[in-house]
Write a protein that binds this DNA or RNA. Structure first.
Lengths: 156, 156
DNA sequence: ACCAGTTCGTCAAGGAGCTTGACTTTGTCC
DNA sequence: GGACAAAGTCAAGCTCCTTGACGAACTGGT
């Protein structure tokens, strides 16, 4: 039993820590740029929704399921997006309980703008790290998420 | 003006999204393993603190600064760690306003245990992705955090 | 046609994890 | 000794999530 061997630097620079820090900084950078532009009230929680919005429409419960959160969590966020005229709620013609959340033309433009912002950040990093390095990072992270998600299923 | 060009897949698999998802899954995997062991009440916020704790002692305000949060945020977290006997608060002999937060022997063991858990996860990934790939991922992420942190300073 | 069970979305309450502001105590500098 | 800064706590509030309960509406069996 010799516990005092506490390797500070090891833990601080562990893959998990670095991964978390990178993700946080990346998101903050993206959000800062978008907030500086046309969407000052956009919060991080809203951005999580964007990849799943379509012009053809989605149910809010489906959005909740894809995000892995409760239905109650997405409600207020969608309210915000409706208030900003980025999406609209229309009654589902096949189910009167449900409403379908659909991107407005303005919402479509917002998504494109978001992609431009993300593209700018990625371009900055690409310039500094090099193309090969960034593409490899992207590919490795994709593999990693698949492996970790698989582990989730096993133990959940 | 042709907004309907909304590339779903592009946004969903963007570097930012993948990075965020990987970080979340990684942290969840680590926390799940630790909670299954000897620390069922450990929350994610606590783990953020560990890399900065030492046996020689640190001020809570210094911990707050390193984590990038307010002093008020770390207080209750340290209270928990004290309650679990992982750290102890001792009065700073050079400044009676301040208390110094110091790892107990048990806290040192907890850190070592945490490193073992992180090492296991990393070993699993290393087995699946290969040594070169994982080392390169680690190195690239380190570069990336440095670049993004630098950008923070500029605009903050 | 009816009733049971499920699902859609919302209201209400609460917890976690942060924030800012105000404050006491103590240290530092002139 | 007196102005100012810093350490840490208390209080209030915000964001983002949770579970529980609910009315309305759909589905399937009888």
């Amino acid at each position: 039993m010799s516990p005092p061997a506490v390797p500070d630097a090891t833990l601080r620079a562990s893959l998990g820590q670095v991964l978390f820090r990178a993700a946080r900084l990346y998101n903050e950078a993206a959000l800062r740029r978008v907030q500086a532009g046309a969407a000052p009230d956009l919060r991080f929680a809203h951005t999580q929704l964007f990849p799943h919005l379509t012009t053809s429409g989605t149910r809010s419960s489906a959005l909740a399921k894809r995000l892995g959160v409760s239905k109650q969590a997405v409600g207020p966020l969608l309210d915000d997006l409706v208030a900003w005229a980025l999406v609209e709620r229309v009654v589902d013609p096949t189910d009167r309980r449900a409403s379908i959340v659909r991107l407005t033309p303005r919402g479509g433009e917002a998504i494109v703008h978001g992609l431009v912002v993300l593209g700018e950040i990625e371009a900055d990093l690409r310039r500094e790290l090099g193309h090969g390095e960034l593409d490899r990072l992207h590919a490795t992270l994709l593999q990693l998420t698949e492996l970790l998600a698989r582990g989730d299923d096993r133990s959940g």
